[in-house]
Each structure stands twice: as C-alpha cells, then as structure tokens.
Design a protein around this nucleic acid. Structure first.
Lengths: 146, 146
DNA sequence: GCGCGTTATGTTATAACATAACATTTTGGC
DNA sequence: GCCAAAATGTTATGTTATAACATAACGCGC
C-alpha cells in the first residue's frame, strides 16, 4: 500500500474501471466477500483476473475508506456510509454473516482510551469487530425454537 | 472441535505431552506465534510435526482457555492469567507485537452491550482485539525522536 | 488381562488467503 | 510526442488452515 492520499481524501479517489468493478460487486453482496469469492463472481461475468489484480483494487478501496477489511473473518465489505471515520464498530452476525456498521459513540471511545492509557497503551484508530447475533437471526430463533 | 468439556472446566483439562509442548513454546515466547512459527521452533528441538498436529493442540488449548487466538493477526498467544473470562481486551502493540491482556471493565461491557442491543444485536462473549502502541514502544519513541 | 469405544495422534494431500517480483500498458503533464 | 508515474497484467510462490483417512493410546467394565 503506497497510496495514502492523505486521510479521508477519498472524495478525490480515482475509481478506475477495475476498482469500480470490485466496489460494485461488494455493494451488491449482502455479505462480506473473500478476495477469491470476489474473483469467482467476476469470473461469472466474464472477467478473468489473477489474484493480485483483485487484491490491488481491494487495497486501494480499503485505503481510501470505501471498503473495510474484516480481519477477524478475512473478508471485504463495502462501507455502507461511504465515510471514513477513524473509529467505528462493525457488528458481525455469526449466523448470517451480515455486517452492520455503527459509529463508535464518544463515551465508549473515551472509556476505551482511558482504560488502555492506564497501561500506557496508545490506542490507534481502528474498526472494532464485534461478533454476535443480529436482529433478524435473533428473531428467527424465537419463531423456530419451542 | 468436538471438545467443549463445559465452559471453564479447564481445571480438568487433559494436558497431553503434545499439548504441553505447544503450551510451553507459547509461554516461552514474548510474542504471539503463528502455527508455522510454532512448528519451526519445535523442529529446532527435534520435534517434527505435520501442521494438523499443531493445529489440533492449538484448537484444544484455545477451547479450554489456556491459549488465545488473535484473529486480527492470525497468531496464538498463551493466556497470561490462565483464566477464561468470557470477555477481555487484548492490547496488541503494532510495533513490537507484544500482547497485553486486560479484563473488560463492567461499565465498558455494559456500554458495548447497550449500544449494540439498540440495533437488536446480541453480543457474544469474545476477546476485544485492540491495536495500539505499548508503553515501552511509546517511551522508545520519546528517546529516539527529536 | 481382554475387548471395546473414545480420544488423541500420525500422515497425505489440498484448500484458502495473500504477496513478491517483474513486464507491460495507460494516464496525464509538459 | 515524450516522459514519469500510476495502474494493470502475469508468473510463481509464500502463508495459513483443514479434509480425509489410518493408527495408536487410554480408560472402563467385565
């Protein structure tokens, strides 16, 4: 990643055709996709890429904040808000894999920072990946369980 | 993973020789290790394993709570407290890779749960992996930077 | 101690995720 | 048009993890 066009400057992002293809695929998918799932879908549209081509487009989109990389599941998801907060929460449903993005409320961030600062730890901006069960899947449980 | 000897029953954990080898290696290392780094170190002691052998021991140790798997960096670290809290914070230094484990204070957990519950999201027990710069590395910056 | 089911380990092969290294093409300023 | 920078193409390989099946060790009732 040798981009870093300055933080949050993605308004000026250069969306080449390759990058648009990748972004569109991710936007169409209700779930995060792995790089290879992405390659498969593009192949379904007649676009044959080697892995580096996909990874380069993904790296770029992550850098400019249009896509998030979910480290905990090694998948990529389009940023629903097209924003680029320095901190946010990503709620990952372990049932359906859907991801919901939430801002990190200030009190929560403050608490996190002060907790870690007590140990001399300087928290970096990052996405908080939280696992759980989403509203739909939780509701489904109610109707199927006795 | 077909273990699940009941949560937190690791007092009765069956530490076979293989599992002890893995646990000792992780305990000796100041940094988290990947499964293959672990295999290399064992090889250095004349213990030649195929990957599944290491992964099985790691899976077991993670299941009983003696080892944590750091999803964000795909590495394994011995639990310093030999405890098995359902929630905790893992502070991962991006400079030196060392990991510090902290309990998750109740107010912080409460805030997290209420925030996510507003979206109908039921948070599962998990380790919070937080990236930052640890005290030592932060102090080192002070002495080397102008 | 013997038979037997369970648990653990050994072994081979391969799946899944990611990048190094180098060649070629495209873009944009002059 | 010329050039440098950026983007893309291409080949090969590195890294992380697991499927599938074979064998060995353990523990328990008898």
């Amino acid at each position: 990643m040798s981009h870093s066009p300055g933080c949050c400057s993605h308004a000026t992002a250069k969306l080449t055709p390759n990058r648009q293809q990748v972004l569109q695929q991710l936007e169409r998918s209700p779930r995060p996709l792995s790089a290879y799932e992405l390659l498969d879908r593009l192949k379904g549209e007649g676009i044959i890429w080697q892995p580096p081509t996909a990874y380069r487009a993904l790296d770029y989109l992550v850098t400019v904040g249009l896509v998030h990389y979910l480290q905990s599941v090694q998948k990529y998801v389009a940023c629903p808000r097209r924003g680029c907060d320095h901190y946010a929460q990503l709620l990952i449903c372990v049932r359906c894999s859907q991801v919901q993005e939430l801002p990190l409320p200030v009190p929560l961030l403050t608490l996190l920072q002060s907790q870690t600062a007590e140990q001399g730890f300087a928290l970096l901006p990052q996405m908080l990946e939280l696992k759980g069960v989403c509203a739909q899947c939780g509701a489904a449980d109610m109707t199927t369980a006795p």
